[in-house]
Nucleic acid binder design. Structure first.
Lengths: 215, 215
DNA sequence: CAATGTGAAACAGTTCACAGCA
DNA sequence: TGCTGTGAACTGTTTCACATTG
């Protein structure tokens, strides 16, 4: 009955764990075997007490006076993040962005192999992109099931985004990353995150203006 | 001395204003002249009290019993965000991602025209991408100054990111959007935001796992 | 004794509830 | 009367300070 090994991980911590993970993997490949919270903070771009609070939530994995064992910590963070084994990804939209994402090798090596690529445009369907054949959008459910995709990326124009999200959910996907601008709504049971470039630029412009004002 | 028209805008509000702006522009193009906080909340995907709190920070622009005047609100949000006139952008890295960004028309129409595109690879330099000629990375400072770019986007591999950031700052850019994974540090006077795809996928995987655990 | 783990304090952001105004 | 504007309560997050321990 509701056996939970990691009782409660704050969202802010979840968002930092992948950053620690990346830093730890780098350190490991440099042959480093032990890190202090101070060192890990430095490679992650946060402060040391933050690192300690975050790691203490996963369990007491550090040794006082010494630090944390790199390999062991990598395993623990992977376990908590659910990054034990690869998570197959389907990308909807094989335009410029979809292709750029498909070609980006970091996904596969990071444990997120792109296993499906669909588009609705007849000129694009059938093309080979990064070793994957672009399938028709109508085949989405099939593609998802054949490749056991559990994560979907929306890389279409804004106008299509909501219906793409609906179809992803219909295909059995509960985790969606949306690159299209504009509002997409999903049921509570689905996790939707968005990467909103226009918003990012506006935020930067705001700070730029603040700077100018203080000159 | 220190005349500040908008005394203090919380970061969380700054991050939502562009979303309101997009919704308002859509509404305006549909001929809508007045919105309630409830309606604006619906198109922005937040709740109504949040909208009211955010807008009240800019000033008392609403009419009780009626709502907000769409056109006027658009102007006010633009003013606060510093989106009055176009902000020229330079992209460093004309690989798949850099090209995808350059081709994305939403930037120009949103007030962020791409005015420069540089890369270090000889095969790419000189190519025409989205109507822009790719210039050598060494010419960055020139490109920035000639086109009055105030915002830089890093679309290079992780290994180059830090030195690209340094060069952008050296070229006079204080606002940077980084797509490369890994740590990039900048002086306090510079605003750096990052879009971290690997982290986004890890966060989704975490929630996916949470779901599975509760089944 | 160096570095972790963690309560307590401070801060930021959201939600609630309702007073106040067109 | 309907919808804004906002103090107050609450929730989440960060920072601080220090006792704890390998």
């Amino acid at each position: 009955m509701d056996e939970v090994s990691t009782p409660l991980v704050p969202e802010a911590t979840v968002a930092r764990l992948p950053v620690y993970l990346r830093g730890l993997v780098d350190l490991a490949s440099d042959g480093v075997e032990t890190v202090s919270s101070e060192q890990l903070a430095a490679v992650a771009g946060v402060n040391a007490e933050n690192v300690r609070k975050d790691l203490s939530i996963l369990g007491s994995y550090g040794k006082r006076g010494v630090g944390y064992e790199v390999d062991f910590l990598i395993e623990q963070i992977k376990r908590v993040l659910g990054a034990g084994d690869p998570v197959s990804v389907v990308i909807v939209g094989a335009g410029n962005l979809g292709r750029a994402l498909a070609y980006y090798g970091g996904f596969a090596s990071g444990g997120f192999p792109i296993k499906g690529l669909v588009d609705s445009s007849p000129e694009i369907i059938g093309q080979e992109v990064a070793g994957i054949t672009v399938e028709p959008f109508e085949e989405l459910k099939d593609v998802v099931q054949k490749n056991s995709c559990t994560l979907g990326i929306i890389a279409t124009p804004a106008a299509a985004a909501q219906s793409v999200a609906d179809q992803l959910i219909n295909a059995g996907i509960y985790s969606i990353l949306n690159f299209a601008p504009g509002l997409v709504t999903v049921p509570e049971s689905v996790t939707l995150r968005k990467v909103d470039l226009a918003t990012e630029l506006h935020i930067l412009a705001f700070h730029e203006q603040q700077r100018e004002r203080n000159e």
